[in-house]
Design a protein around this nucleic acid. Structure first.
Length: 559
RNA sequence: GACCCCGUAGCUCAGAUGGAUAGAGCGGCGGUUUCCUAAACCGCAGGUCGUCGGUUCGAAUCCGGCCGGGGUCGCCA
């Protein structure tokens, strides 16, 4: 909290150190029992011509207790301060409400987030999870910071994959259900792999679709409607929502027009039978193939322009696999090179890949697992645990579904997104340890205490929270706004998930300490202590709930 | 070959702006349930932070070389 850090800086100033340098030096000790705030004195040593320990001693000597700080102790080259716990607690706990971490920093700014990007007529596979879940968390985080967010799903709805589906349709007739579509696609895809003539046929269909051939469009429309329904089932479970659903096909015509215009304006040039945009440092960006058709990258340029015109964004994030880093570097360089001054507003939020047995899961070889199957299996396993642990619970099915989903989501958001994920059923669907279900569990146990204790009291006395375990929790709760801010600023939800896990673990530790020592129980006999502890428990509960919702995980009251 | 990422405990990974004894989870071993949810908690074992060098009062963190792994490198998306 700002006031307390400022108080430390002012002590340093009193000792004759430069105020702005002191402000930047204030830190939180890594070992929390050393103190609440610290001042490493190395930066001042040179300016004052004194060794750091001497500076530290000098600062400690200049200290006098005030309403913010109660003690200062020089320990070697550091000065460690203890804050006025009562004052800090009285500010922290009331702030931990349902609006915790919210800010207005993004007011008036629009951010477009492109996440999901499934392909038509193909099921969502496990590795599609990442873009959707990370993108949704970023949407939530930026909305919480006051931005207007446009969550955009950009469908892969052109290209030879669609052609392969058509080949399947020609062989086995028009599919009626999603499962039939899936089978038809796989059949068509296999046929094309085995027979070059079929592959040509698929390319032919793809071209017809690009040329707005009515029959091709009719198939496309049906495939689109059914696919969206199938995607919707998965997205609903994951809490993934989009504001806009676009697709590549809407840009095919404009892509050709763009290439013509760029050629006329001298922004693009012919090369080896195709057309490229020079990108400076990067490899030239191919925007038209020698057969005259455009590529997805061409459509990406048109899409970016279209989105800028439609939404007037301050920033646009592409939440896409790290393997496409070079593509996006080329894309952004191309946007800049054709003279779009807002090119710098586009960013690639790159996440790691899903590995199966050490190497990348490939969609085409069918190595990956269907996402819906993972979610169903998670629900099944969670239901078995619920039956075992809490058979009397009502609504077991929906709890099990929430728990299974939480496990899957936390695999994506519990660690820095750039890390690869090793696919393993038991790892993905683990409910033990540092997992989504653990966070739900701790939240549920806090809810349980509050139910038994009659909820959070209106009046409470912060000085009753005198135990170190309680102080740890208060400090942790105070970190939420900064964690949310940093998660959004760095597009890194794990800054938030890490804090939630630390908070949950410390609360659980506190909770079980009450089992060994009855004087530490929240629901203790002394009314004033009980009220203060209930307030603390409620702040923990609320902080977990707010954080989990931002991650897209449902906080459960019972499980 | 070029460019990008990565290398921390048996396994999977945390360690923002360089700072005081490098931390979790899983797995292993040993404890804890007449007590607010044991999906938990407490304890123990386990690390030359790939390697060599540099910058610095101080390096897992910054810079360079090397070794090892992954990714990408215009006519797929």
């Amino acid at each position: 909290m700002k006031e307390f850090e400022e108080a430390v800086a002012r002590v340093a100033e009193k000792a004759g150190l430069p105020l702005d340098l002191a402000r930047g030096a204030v830190a939180v000790p890594k070992e929390r029992d050393r103190g609440d705030l610290s001042l490493p004195c190395f930066p001042f040593a040179k300016a004052l011509g004194q060794p750091p320990p001497a500076v530290a001693a000098r600062v400690a000597k200049a200290f006098a207790p005030d309403e913010w700080l109660v003690s200062a102790e020089a320990q070697g080259p550091f000065v460690n301060f203890r804050v006025n716990r009562k004052a800090f607690t009285e500010r922290t706990l009331p702030a931990a409400g349902p609006e915790s971490g919210r800010s207005a920093e993004g007011n008036g700014k629009t951010i477009v987030i492109d996440y999901g990007s499934p392909n038509l007529a193909k099921p969502l596979l496990f590795h599609h999870l990442r873009s959707a879940v990370i993108g949704q968390a970023l949407s939530n985080l930026f909305r919480w910071r006051g931005y207007r967010v446009v969550g955009l799903n950009y469908l892969g709805d052109v290209g030879t994959a669609l052609g392969k589906l058509m080949v399947g349709i020609e062989a086995s007739g028009e599919p009626r259900t999603i499962d039939e579509y899936k089978r038809t696609y796989v059949e068509g895809s296999r046929a094309c792999a085995a027979d070059p003539a079929k592959m040509d046929r698929a390319r032919h269909w793809a071209k017809r679709l690009e040329e707005d051939d009515p029959e091709a469009i009719r198939h496309w429309e049906k495939a689109r409607a059914l696919s969206l329904r199938a995607f919707g089932e998965v997205y609903d479970r994951l809490g993934v929502r989009h504001d806009v659903v676009d697709g590549e096909r809407m840009y095919v015509r404009r892509a050709q027009e763009l290439v013509d215009r760029l050629l006329r304006d001298g922004k693009a040039e012919e090369s080896e039978g195709g057309v490229v945009i020079p990108t400076g440092g990067e490899t030239p960006f191919l925007v038209r193939k020698s057969d005259g058709t455009t590529l997805y990258g061409t459509r990406d340029i048109v899409a970016a322009i279209d989105r800028f015109e439609r939404f007037g964004f301050e920033r646009m994030l592409y939440v896409v696999d790290v393997a496409q880093e070079q593509h996006f570097r080329q894309l952004f360089a191309s946007l800049a090179n054709v003279g779009l001054d807002w090119a710098g507003r586009c960013e690639h939020v790159a996440f790691g890949q899903v590995l199966v047995g050490g190497s990348r899961a490939k969609t085409r070889e069918g190595e990956s697992v269907e996402l819906i199957d993972v979610l169903r299996e998670g629900e099944k396993r969670a239901l078995a645990v619920v039956e075992e642990k809490n058979a009397a619970l009502k609504d077991k099915e929906s709890v099990a579904r929430a728990v299974g989903t939480a496990a899957v989501i936390f695999c994506d958001l519990g660690f820095p997104i750039r890390k690869n994920i090793h696919f393993d059923w038991d790892e993905i669907l683990s409910f033990d340890g540092r997992t989504g279900p653990y966070l739900q569990y701790v939240h549920a146990s806090a809810c349980s205490i509050l139910r038994k204790g009659g909820g959070a009291p209106a009046a409470w006395d912060a000085s009753r929270l005198s135990h170190d375990l309680e102080w740890d929790l208060v400090r942790r709760i105070a970190e939420l706004p900064a964690a949310v801010g940093r998660a959004a600023a760095e597009c890194e939800p794990s800054h938030l998930s890490s804090l939630l896990y630390d908070l949950a673990r410390e609360f659980r530790s506190y909770h079980t300490a009450g089992a060994r020592d009855a004087t530490l129980r929240v629901l203790t006999d002394d009314a004033a202590t009980r009220a203060a502890r209930l307030k603390l428990t409620d702040a923990v509960r609320t902080t977990l709930a707010v954080g989990l919702r931002l991650l897209g995980i449902e906080p459960l009251e019972e499980m």
